[in-house]
Write a protein that binds this DNA or RNA. Structure first.
Lengths: 130, 130, 130, 130
DNA sequence: GTGGTCTAGACCACG
DNA sequence: GTGGTCTAGACCACA
């Protein structure tokens, strides 16, 4: 599980760890029923304090992505099946996409390339060859 | 120019204002050669401190999106033409797209709907009917 | 005896088991003179460590609700008769009631409904039809 | 605003502060639009670390009871009007009432006295003479 | 001045 | 050993 944090980023370390772990769960790199690394282990790998990692784990637990139990570590929950997504989820996704196209245009990247890049990301997540 | 800030968000007000203004420039809602509102005007509209807005304007100027001249306000620069985007831009766009698909999967939103949503965003930015 | 524990709760498993057993004794679901399940039996039913259950039993014994004797298990003691309650008990009860009305008001629940709900709880404890 | 914390309690200091502040908001001791004390002020009053108080404030903000803004302190939000309470709220209230009657019976407190005590709490919250 | 985050390291509860 | 909480105090962003 290769995750890194950028100490110079305006986004907090906790947030970076949280987002990276959401990704790990979404890709099923660590599957349903398996454990994440212990907070102290991951913290030492990343070079951050273990309480910072523990805070990120708590948020994942609040989201229902993992179950955290003292003395037993953090276990990944069963994934949600595809279904009618909530309005909140759709709004979040839309926001991210809007940011992507905004960055693309300001950076002079043709919008067709953005669509191609999205197809690559979708294929990656599905585990298909790109 | 309708921009709003969320005071409860973990992302700073400065960052929210900065991002919203990037969007305004990207959509050409305020076109090349026109002025943004004054720092104090926008601050008062949003109910935030004027120094916060000023910091956001400075960042836009650093990005080369606007030029700020004493006594003449903040003027939007000519847009970049589409071209070969820098690696940085492509990485940023890719990151946003990755976050979008991650959120979609965790929220149970079918990935095909993400592609459809992106097409809508692209059309919106181009000013085409959706 | 159907008791469950919530592994995600901020309140410890020991505390949950302890509270649930207090409830079981109060309702006389296991009556005066009868035995609680063995520590290892209950632990295995709940999927928790047996030492956790043992700690809860110790607390019940300290409270005088059960007696634990080697080789004979944990036996429920005779209930206290109704009498003038100690100041401590009255303070505890008052605290719980205060929390209940606080939650009700913050959640928009009319306070009359709280009184009705209490009458239901009293009837339940007495074993009357609700 | 007289709140105290019990350092020997099994419930965490953060939780105690959080509950006490929920009470303060519910009773409108600090009304809609007013500010709570600053985190450092309250922490110093209680003799705890200010980050502990800050965590409690964050939870209140998550609950939508207050709005916390850097440099401006924590402001109480408008109260919810009475309405049909959610199932979650009703379950929470019911749980608290169940704990109250359990404690009463185990402590030998007549259940009629519990009902009387609840009426007092309701009157207190409504600001009526008791 | 406000609150937000991070590190450091203590102590505790749980398995 | 696990994670949870607290203190202590640094540094940052915002008003």
């Amino acid at each position: 599980m290769a995750i890194t944090v950028n100490f110079d980023s305006p986004v907090s370390i906790e947030e970076q760890v949280y987002q990276a772990l959401r990704r790990v769960v979404a890709t099923r790199e660590i599957a349903h029923g398996e454990n994440l690394p212990t907070v102290r282990q991951l913290a030492s790998d990343l070079g951050v304090h273990w309480t910072t990692v523990a805070r990120a784990y708590r948020r994942l637990a609040t989201d229902g992505l993992i179950v955290v139990r003292r003395g037993r570590g953090a276990t990944v929950c069963a994934p949600r099946s595809e279904s009618r997504a909530s309005a909140t989820v759709r709004a979040t996704v839309r926001q991210k996409l809007m940011e992507a196209v905004t960055e693309a245009r300001l950076g002079g990247m043709p919008l067709e390339q953005v669509e191609a890049a999205l197809r690559r990301e979708v294929a990656l997540l599905k585990g298909e060859p790109v």
